Simulated scan of single mutants.
Amino acid sequence: MTSEGVEPGTVRPGGRTARVRESVLRAAGDALAEHGFDGLDLADVARRAEVGKTTVYRRWSTTTGLIADLLDDMAEQSTPRTDTGSLIGDLKANARLVVKTLSDPRQGALFKSVIAAATCDARTAESLHRFYAIRVQEWAACVTQALERGELPAGTDPGEVIRAVSAPLYYRLLAGGGPLDTAAADRAAEAAAAAARAGVYVM
């Protein structure tokens, strides 16, 4: 913490400072995708972003502080959820977005690096959990709407349904459990929808 009690990398800047933040976070994402968490170096990030090392060290101070800010920015920039008017349509849209992200060479490698870092660093884990909490909350609204339409049993937990959609897709990313494609996305959505209709996620 700083003397004012603010964690480095958590203040939202404006103007030129915002442009510097954007450049540094883009550079950090590139470095993570290329070299992983162990290879992330603040000096290298500064070089890639074409800003002074002191600027990066003063604002973020540590690689975990930089990753935390990167994850917050990723959550803010994420694509809004789709509203197709049906549960299965919405869940397929969610699954296909996950597949599009994880199968992207840069984004897939970036998520692998951040997830690996979260297994051994508490602050990175906290930031990653916050990122996914935001994304789950965004898409959980489609399950809430399905409940209102009577498509699902009362008491269904919307967050659990959304997590059930993405879980098998992340397994494929991290454990090599098959291709990440549209067919895999649709199967994950259909399985989650079927389980939800059967009352599996009633809490």
Rank of each mutant, 00 (worst) to 15 (best):
S113T: 04
R172L: 06
K112A: 06
L110Y: 14
R130D: 15
A167V: 05
A116I: 02
L128K: 03
P105S: 10
Q107W: 10
T124Q: 02
R149L: 09
S113W: 03
Q107C: 05
R149A: 14
C142P: 00
C120Q: 13
E126N: 06
C120P: 00
A164Q: 01
S127K: 06
R123D: 14
G150M: 10
Q137E: 15
P158C: 08
S103K: 13
I115N: 07
A140K: 07
Y171A: 15
D157L: 02
R172V: 03
D157F: 00
A164K: 00
I162S: 01
R135N: 11
V136Y: 12
A154T: 12
S103F: 05
A154H: 11
F111L: 06
A117G: 10
L152Q: 09
T144R: 14
Q107P: 00
Y170N: 11
D104C: 02
A118Q: 09
R130Q: 14
V165Y: 00
A125E: 13
S113H: 08
H129Y: 11
D157I: 01
Q107G: 06
P105W: 10
G150T: 09
Q137P: 00
L147A: 06
A154W: 01
A154P: 01
S113L: 04
R106Q: 15
A117K: 08
R163E: 08
H129K: 07
F131T: 06
S103V: 04
A122G: 05
I134R: 15
S127Y: 05
R130C: 04
S127G: 15
A118L: 07
Y132A: 05
G150K: 10
D104I: 03
P153K: 08
T124R: 01
D121H: 12
E126P: 00
A116W: 05
H129L: 13
Y171S: 14
S166V: 15
